[in-house]
Write a protein that binds this DNA or RNA. Sequence first.
DNA 1: TAGACAACGTAATACTATAACAGGTCAATC
DNA 2: GATTGACCTGTTATAGTATTACGTTGTCTA
Lengths: 174, 174
Amino acid sequence: MHPHDHPHDPACTACTTPDLAFAPHDHAGCATDVLTRADALAAANGVRLTPVRRRVLEILLEGHRAMGAYDVLQRLASDGFGHQPPVAYRALDFLVEQGLVHRIHRLNAFAACMHPGEAHAPAFLICTACHLVAEAPATPVRAALNKAAKTLGFTIDTAHIEAQGLCPACQALQ
Amino acid sequence: MHPHDHPHDPACTACTTPDLAFAPHDHAGCATDVLTRADALAAANGVRLTPVRRRVLEILLEGHRAMGAYDVLQRLASDGFGHQPPVAYRALDFLVEQGLVHRIHRLNAFAACMHPGEAHAPAFLICTACHLVAEAPATPVRAALNKAAKTLGFTIDTAHIEAQGLCPACQALQ
DNA sequence: TAGACAACGTAATACTATAACAGGTCAATC
DNA sequence: GATTGACCTGTTATAGTATTACGTTGTCTA
């Protein structure tokens, strides 16, 4: 897997790979790839992926799940970092600003972005059974949303699209 | 204005009226119409729109804005209802279940549904300047979302689509 | 009218998030 | 090499959001 230190490029396989959350995959590779890309992005943007921040990203990358700030905090504390909420919230806020983490409002939780550096505006698919979260490409969804807003004269700045339902694996178990 | 005690009907003008939040309109009529429809819906569904519940809906209908549960609670308390959070949350939960109120996750707040009884799955447009909230018809948006989910094998149960930006009036003031 | 059940009210608590301030690190500058 | 200033981390304290648990009242029905 190449370092992937570039913005979205249709010629790059990693860039065009669909979200793997719901598919069996080499998760260790998947996670370290994202971390590598995160390092590169931080350098490119002139910001610092400090130890706490990087650790938070690692923690979120352990699974394709959203975690609450306090769960992250507990992990940080047991790793020798601070014990107070701002420690977690600051790192999370930074990662969200940098596009390395997404906030899932419906769950009051945070999930690692699996497509950092790619210009993307995902829709989140949240499995209510196994709690996996995937990012679905949502360009057409956003186009439709912009169009709907336009008919009311509204100009969209940011949009959050979060769907709950069943992932393929959990559907099979029903 | 007719009682509107029916489900969505393309032949009914009230049913096909676009959301008026961003447009100058007869708000008193707009609010009482929704209340009338709410009464009819509750009766039709065999549930009770009790005094607290109805009052909560009235409060939310005072403006096309989302309110936090504790703001609603304060109003309820000053109207002689209970002073504890469950009083507000229970009424709000009921109204959400009945489709008379929408939860705006991004704001941790609640807004009266302006299209009760119409089979609708709106996208919420939240003005960051004046805090008005409108419901945009989102059938095409949801179609696109379902399609995106399908490519990942995901089945959507419920979706929340919330956009932030500027309403027409606030754009004009920029 | 007795029983079942829904609705309301309260107290207590859990969960999520931010404000305000102190000390530490590091790079650029004098 | 000391100094400044920006940024980062940590703390305490507090604000804001939501739920659990339990007792009482009201309503409907058998």
